[in-house]
Amino acid sequence: MTLVEKYALLPEEIDRESLKMVQADLPGGINLPPEEHYVLCRIVRAEGDPAIAEMVRFSPGAVASGLAALKAKIDVVTDVRMVEMGISKALLSRQQVATRCLIDVPEVAARAQREKTTRSVAAVRELAPHLEGAVVAIGNAPTALWRFWTW
């Protein structure tokens, strides 16, 4: 494949080729079921560091539960727009799944300042009425994840 051909690929082809590159760079000895392996490759690609593959763990049935939730049209709640934008809009529209993120609304900024916390934690607190039964995806703000552990 020439350089021009490589960069003239359709988005689906780019996705497929990049996942092949990730698989080639994974450390040896990782033995996962296909669906977990696929998720792991996407995590590694997003992180940009194949070494993270050895740190990722899956709860039994986690991938199946996540897929079932999306098929059941369960909302996805997230603390940051980066995660919301990373969720496939095609998947969301096809499955009729909604996302909820409030990180950039003025009420969240005011709450974070008032409570002396991060906007990410304040966003999760604002979304508390929507958390029950939702898929919760925490992005790059560890304070939001920490908030779930201490809630």
Results as ranks from 00 to 15, higher is better:
T143Q: 02
A98Q: 10
E54W: 06
V136H: 03
H130C: 05
E84G: 13
P27K: 02
P60H: 13
E115H: 10
A24M: 08
Y38H: 12
A110Q: 07
R119P: 06
P129H: 06
G29P: 04
W149E: 11
H130Y: 13
R16P: 01
L26D: 08
I87L: 15
P129F: 10
V56T: 08
Y38T: 13
A122P: 00
V83Q: 10
D49Q: 08
D49L: 07
A144R: 01
A134N: 00
K116I: 05
I43A: 03
E54G: 12
R81Y: 13
L127H: 02
K116P: 00
V56N: 05
V124C: 07
E107V: 03
V124D: 01
M21E: 13
V63P: 05
L91T: 13
G86K: 13
R119G: 07
I103D: 02
M21H: 13
A109M: 11
K89C: 02
A98V: 04
V135I: 14
C101T: 07
S65P: 00
I138A: 02
P142T: 04
Y7C: 12
M21Y: 08
N31G: 11
L91F: 12
V105F: 04
A24W: 00
C41L: 08
L26H: 01
K20L: 15
E5G: 13
E47G: 08
A72E: 14
L70S: 07
A64C: 05
V44M: 02
D75M: 11
V108H: 04
S93G: 02
